[in-house]
Write a protein that binds this DNA or RNA. Sequence first.
DNA 1: AGCACA
Length: 239
Amino acid sequence: MGFALFATQQHALAAKDALQDMVFDAESKSVLHTEMAKKNLFVKRGIVADSNTYDQSKRMRTGGDYTHTAYSTSPFHPPPPAVWGPHGYMAPPPPPYDPYAGYPVPTVPMPAPAPVPAPSSYVPVQNTKDNPPCNTLFIGNLGENINEEELRGLFGAQPGFKQMKVLRQERHTVCFIEFEDVNSATNVHRSLQGAVIPSSGSVGMRIQYSKNPFGKRKDAIHPAAAPNVNGGPPPMTYQ
DNA sequence: AGCACA
C-alpha cells in the first residue's frame, strides 16, 4: 500500500480513475486499487520542493498526461526519477543499459584466467614411508599456524581437485585432499612437495598418499579375496 | 613422521 500526493483534488481524482483496476502485474494478473486517502499526505519541506513528485507518479505508468496544467518545467534540472518507495508495489528496477544488448560480444581475452596461488617457496622435505599412489593425498608438516584458507586456495586450484578435509590435532594439523583420479593426485604430490605457504612459516609441507583414500573403507572386503567361499566355518555376521 | 570421512 502507498500514498501519492497531488497538486489538487482534481488531479488526484483524475489519477485515481485512470489507475483504478490497472493491471500492474501481467503474470499474477494483479490489479491496482485506488481510493482517496482519508488525510492529506504530509511531506517534509525540502524533499518535495516543487511539483515533481506528484507529476512523476502520475506520468510513470498511465500513459496519460495530467501535467499540462500543474507541471511547470524546472529551470534547474530534469525531474528526478519517480519514487515508489512507500508503495506496496515495487516496480522491478529497469535493467542497466547495455550498449551491446543483442549483439554478439566477442570474448574478451583474459590476461590470467585463474591465477593459481603459487607457493612462496619450496623447502626440501623428508618423505620416507609413503603409501601406494591413490587419489587422496595426506599433507603433513604444515607448521603451527597453518591457515586453512591458504591451503584451500592452493589445493583447490589444482587440476582434478575434489575436496579437502583439515584435521586439527593437538600436536599437528594435517589435511587430506581428494582428487578426481590418481594421476591428478600424483601431479600435485610431485609439484607441491615441500611447498611453503605464508601461514606455514618456513617449513615445507610433506605430501604423501593417504593410507585410506576418500570413499574407500579400510575394512572393505573384496569378494574374491574373502576366505571361506565354500565350506569352513560360517563367516562373521554383523548386526 | 601426525591418516579422517564414508
